[in-house]
Each structure stands twice: as structure tokens, then as C-alpha cells.
Design a protein around this nucleic acid. Sequence first.
DNA 1: GTGCCGTCTGCATACGTGTGCAATTTAATT
DNA 2: AATTAAATTGCACACGTATGCAGACGGCAC
Lengths: 339, 339
Amino acid sequence: MSERKVTSLHVARRAGVSQSAVSRVFSGASASPQTVSKVRKAAEYLGYRPNPLARAMITGKSKIIGLVVAYLDNQFYPLALERLSNALQDQGYHVLVFMAPNDEGAVEKVVHDLMDYQVAGIITASVGMTNDLTRRCADAGIPVVMFNRGQDGGGISSVTSANVAGGAQIAEFLVAGGHKRIAHIAGWKGSSTGRDRQRGFVDGLAANGMEPVAIIDGHFDREIAAQATRDIMSGSKPADAIFVGNDHMAFAVMDTLRGELGLSVPEDVSVVGYDDVPLAAWAAYDLTTLRQPLNRMVEATVDTLLGQIGDPARPSQRIEIEGPLILRGSAKTPEGWTQ
Amino acid sequence: MSERKVTSLHVARRAGVSQSAVSRVFSGASASPQTVSKVRKAAEYLGYRPNPLARAMITGKSKIIGLVVAYLDNQFYPLALERLSNALQDQGYHVLVFMAPNDEGAVEKVVHDLMDYQVAGIITASVGMTNDLTRRCADAGIPVVMFNRGQDGGGISSVTSANVAGGAQIAEFLVAGGHKRIAHIAGWKGSSTGRDRQRGFVDGLAANGMEPVAIIDGHFDREIAAQATRDIMSGSKPADAIFVGNDHMAFAVMDTLRGELGLSVPEDVSVVGYDDVPLAAWAAYDLTTLRQPLNRMVEATVDTLLGQIGDPARPSQRIEIEGPLILRGSAKTPEGWTQ
DNA sequence: GTGCCGTCTGCATACGTGTGCAATTTAATT
DNA sequence: AATTAAATTGCACACGTATGCAGACGGCAC
């Protein structure tokens, strides 16, 4: 009962055709109806499945997409991974996951490994690419899409939410809520995402003749965000509202405000996050936050990547997707403010 | 500047040796010191990297480990994925991730896909294998390790925490805390993990002459767990303590108790979870829970899998790792109870 | 110098598939 | 019916590596 490796040659023999005929049937090239039928039947009988590795050897392109991600403790990323993987599976691709700490050397090593596997494309999430690496991928004909992060030097596709607009929208919201001392715990300055949100936010305040009482880089890290909260609230002019660069840090901020400093949210301090991860909707936090539309971002990422795989000449594009502000209980909602 | 694919043949030419010599140097076979040196030098100069796909074609085994996982919203799994991926990367392996809803057909399809890639091994997390599938993997010489789930029909390796003992320990803890009406929202009955915890818990209560006032299957799902909470608390004899089958559901239980039913934890109801995901330590929940030692579980999983890859004759083993009860604020801690 | 053994090396082939090319069949057109 | 164009098919080779086999080489003992 040993069903040893059954190859296209076995199928060919049983179907009474040549091996190339079998190959053509399974790779979608043209073949006469009766050939197709004979081959399909024989393949079915023998339990034949084309060997994707051999296929990749020939074509130089595997059906594997490399996903590079720095960390998975921020709930946004595992969810993105889940959706990306599902969407790509539906298209016949599979996802090779690489963890890469966000330093240059590690990313370089990882990208080399990926190129060894002749991946059809690369998605980076929460991880930066150097321009040099970008170029080498381009040279190797491997399209790259950055997910939830952009890059200034052009030539690379990216999918993000409309971070500048989002930051501005939150500024408007907090001003309209009557807050007078507004602080910002920013995302990591080394990321476009963090910078853009901050810029939109500061500009939005400026448009109302205000400026933040404090801006501290939280590095997308809970502990650093907690310390930033202590610093902001212990000064002579403690904030009455804090915009936090993502939900993951916002939870730490709320924990610190309520548990450690004994303050009420939103009575004493309003808190607004960014992402709208599922946890933000849970009763314990009930976080007002700007939603990043995960499904549409994933969809755009897959479309862009597969598009570039199918047509290597297609130019890179930066896609920004707008998201709504989700009103919950962690911030005062101005009268008549609509969802 | 076009650094086209550089193959072992190019290296061979430049080093003045045969292609087989190059192959032997990079696959660890024997070669004279001067050959090794010449080859290494030429390879370095040309930027040669062995092609893992071609290598896999020949040997029939790639350096890829398939990881099958059902969902990533329970924080325990992304963390496991992160650690597993890192540990395997250190050993020169890479992780191909497959999402598989927990029904038989989907898992089967996924495993077939994995076998097509000639993976060196498979790890399943939060996903069940049928005995038939197990056998087919064994036939194909692909070792499988189930992570955080066991299987009754032997012949397959698994790594779990000591779930029965853990359940019993929680029973002792709640009894010692003076609770009189203890309920259990169980994990999915279709999983060994859920069943074992429940069994240990019920037996532990019985050893103290008690029995649970309610047992409801929460299916590891937030919404179902929330409904179970309502049911348990709305009866004529509401519980004064609830053991929840994992942290993920326990958070929903706490949200429901506090937000919806207006009860205090632990004053009105003690809540104990299972896993000790990072979120359990956050101030908003501060959940007393039994820790699954993630690092040691990952370590054991990798060891077991690589062991079986290295020595196919090695018998399968079921590893259970004990974890401590982590005392926090969501449950009354009995006098003198030690961490 | 001869014989033997152990190590190293190159040659050739295999892994399972895709694809250019030429030969052949089929359909379409005059 | 004859001619031409199109569609299909088989042959052979390529992708990049590992490995069995046999020959070459060096060292050692007699």
C-alpha cells in the first residue's frame, strides 16, 4: 500500500501520453479536451499532485510569500497575519514567516534567506527596509509591499491607513471635546506610521491655535508608554487628554492612569488610541480609537503584491486607506459628534 | 552589475574544482582543507548561496516546518508562533504557516499542501489531527508534534502543560479560598486540553466533597463564554467563583461580570483563568491564572520535532510540563497560600 | 619496487517539472 | 480536393544540487 512519490511521468504512462502533456494540463497551458480528460483521470486514480518545489526550480518562482514581522504582541499584527495568510491561501500562495528584530543586520539576513527560497513576493509588517535592500529585491525581481509602514525613498509599494488625516481627525475631536492640555505619546519616530500620525495631530492642533503640552516617543512599547504617562501626569501641568500612537500603548496608558495614579478615564483624562484592535472594544478598556480598516488593508496588500507578481512592470504604489474614529468610553465625546 | 543567479558551478569554475566538490563543502561532507578553503573563498567572492529548493528536490526534505493553527485571536498562539519561529530559525529551519479552521476537511487539505512542500516536520497548534492523517504523515516520514493539544490514539507526539494537575490545583485553591458555589466554563470538549482541565478540576473538587454548581462548554470563544456567565449568574444559586478554561475566555467573563452585571471581582465572584498570557498581568484584568510555561513548551516542541527529524526511528512521546498558579487580584487568595 | 589501503576528487546521473522546437494532426478556407 | 493556418503533441533539454562509482593520489609496510 506504499504510495510512493507519484510523478508526472507515472501519470503520463497511465494516460498514454507524454510527460510534457501532463505538465501542460497542470500548468494551465493548452491541450486538447480528450488529453485533459485522460490525464485528469489518471492523475486522480494515482493521487498525483504536482511538486511545487520542482516547479519552482524551473520557473524560478515559488508560490511562497515571505512575511517579515518584528513582533506579535501587538494584537494588530497576528490578526493581519491571519487575514493575509487566509487571503493568500485562497490564491494558492503560502506564507513563510520570518521574525526579524528591527535592526538593519537582522532584516538583511532574513531577506537573503527569503530570496534563497525564491519567494514570489515579500510583505513586511512593522519592519523597515533599507533602500539598499529594496533595490536588491527589485534586482531579483521580487516585489515588496510594506504593510502598515511607508518609506520615503520611492520605488516601494506600501499600504497604510491615512495616518496624517487620522492624526488630524483626533486633534479635532479632542479640541471639540473641550480639552485644554493635550499630550501625545507618539509611535516610534523611526517609523513613518508614528511620524505621520504625530504630524497630522500636531498640525490639527495648530489649526485650532493649540499645541501639545508634551510629546514623548513611546516606541510602540508598553513599558515606555507607561513611563511617559507618569512623566506627563506628574508635571506641574498634567494633561487632560492623551492621544496615544497605537492601541497597544494606549492600554498601558490606561492601566497606569487608573491603576497606578488613581485617575478616572475619561473624567480626569481622555485617552484616544489608534488601530481599533478587538481588545479596544472589550469592556475593561472601551477605548476610543481610530480604526485601521484591517480587511481593506489586507485586501489592498494582496492585490498590490499579486498585481506586481503578475506584471513585473507595474509601478509601485502607495495606498492609504481612511478609517473612521470609533467613539467609545475612554474619551469625552463632544455634543453632536457623529460616529 | 547584474548579479545573476550564481550557482555551485560558477563557484566550481572560479575555484578550479568540480561542482561536486563545491556541493560537498556546503553540505558538510568531507573534503581536503585546501579544497574547502578555495571553495569558500570563491563562494564568498561571488556571493554564492546554496539553493534550498534544489537541495530539497534531491534529498526529499526541505528545511521547512509546517505550522498549522486555527486562530490567532487568543494571545497565547501568536506568542507561541513567535517563539517557535525564532527557535526554529536558530536551527536553520523556517516556518510555513497555514490557517486551518478546525474541521476535518480543511485540516486534511492543509496537510496535503504541506506534504507537497516536503516539509521536514509539522507542528499543529490548537488544531486536531485525525488518526488517518497522522498515519499518512507517518507513512510519508514526516514527524508531527501537537502543541497544546494531545491525542488519545497514540503514535503522535504532543506537548502540553499538565492540564489535569492544573485543574486540580485550581480546585484546591478555590476551595481553600472558602468558595461554596463554584462553576466552570470549560474549554471546548472536542479538545484534550479542555477535557483534561475539566477532569482535573472536577476530581479536585470531589476530593473535597464538592461538585461544581455548573459546567458549561465555552468553546474557547468570548461570546459563548459571556453568555455562559450570564446563565451561571442569573440562576437561583449564582456562583461565587468561576474557573474559566483559558484566559481568553476569562477576560470575557470578567467583562461581563463587571461591566454588564455590575458585580465586583473578586468581592462578589472570584475568577481564575488558564494560560497566563501577558494580558492577564495588565492592570485592567489582573487575572489569577495557571501559567502554561510557554518557553519550556516551545523548547520541548522544537527538541521533540528536530529529534524525530534527525532520527526517524525515535518513538513519539507525550510531554507534559507543570506550571505554577499565578496569584493576582481576580480571585480571593487563601491565607498563607504560597505562590 | 610492489602491493595495499584510505582519502579525495571528478564524472555522470538523478530529482520532478516547464518549455522551445519541430513534427504531426486537425480545422478552415479556396 | 487541395492548400494553408492553427492547434496539439512528443522529444529533448534545462533548472541547481546531491551522491554512487571509479579513478587518482599519497602513505605505509614489506
